[in-house]
């Protein structure tokens, strides 16, 4: 909501008390103000996993086979009740060099995720996770429309490829628009937040979600280091 829209200049100056009351009401209404709070902090990350070995036993033509190591990352998000986005967000999770990129993708509920294939071979993405079961079948590069799915139930989705057994990725579907991924050292900065009281969560892996109650103030910068 834009306060200036409520007070067009053509109406002239309002009394000072009224202006003060309007300001106070807007200040005390979380989510109604333009988001401004910031949380910075750190999440302890698990140790780096070994990159998998590509199974090439029955592929007579093999190329490379060295996959990059995906360092563990965490997703930090603000839990609360927030309005759904006016237009469904769109995200991409690509398949390149027999790997999902990124290997962890946080999205808001209602997001449409596209899965473009950038390899010169077939991929077959599927998920048996309870929040979203699907199987896109075998599709190649430049397929139009790009195979996609809308993720409308919060939860963790494990993506796999039916052809390349080493390929795995996670989509974390969140009921909040306020989330961010840590860097590889576990540091994060979550900006543009509405003032108010919330629970800040850090998803580390499928078994570990850390949380901390937080109180955000307008223009405030809060430091949260998870244990």
């Amino acid at each position: 909501m834009n306060p200036s829209a409520q007070h067009p200049r053509s109406q002239g100056r309002a009394p000072a008390t009224i202006r003060s009351m309007i300001f106070l009401i807007l200040l005390l209404t979380p989510g109604m103000l333009k988001a401004q709070a910031v949380i910075e902090g750190h999440v302890p990350l698990p140790k780096t996993r070994t990159a998998p070995v590509v199974n090439k036993r029955y592929e007579i033509v093999t190329q490379g086979g060295v996959l990059s190591t995906n360092p563990p990352l965490a997703v930090v998000y603000l839990e609360g009740v927030f309005p759904a986005p006016a237009t469904p967000p769109v995200a991409q999770l690509i398949q390149k060099d027999l790997t999902f990129v990124p290997s962890l993708l946080p999205v808001q509920v209602g997001t449409k995720v596209e899965f473009p294939n950038l390899d010169d071979t077939y991929h077959n993405i599927f998920s048996y996770s309870l929040p979203k079961r699907f199987d896109l079948g075998r599709y190649r590069a430049n397929e139009t429309p790009v195979p996609s799915q809308v993720f409308d139930v919060p939860g963790l989705i494990t993506l796999r490829c039916d052809i390349h057994e080493h390929m795995r990725a996670l989509i974390l579907v969140l009921a909040t628009p306020y989330f961010v991924m840590t860097d590889t050292d576990g540091h994060f900065r979550l900006a543009g937040l509405p003032a108010g009281r919330y629970v800040l969560k850090a998803w580390v892996d499928s078994k570990t979600t850390l949380e901390r109650p937080v109180e955000l103030t307008v223009d405030g910068v809060l430091r949260v280091d998870f244990p």
Binding site: V53, G65, V66
Partner: peptide, 10 residues
Amino acid sequence: LDAQYQSNLY
């Protein structure tokens, strides 16, 4: 057992 040494040996 699958093993990969650099990109040349499998």
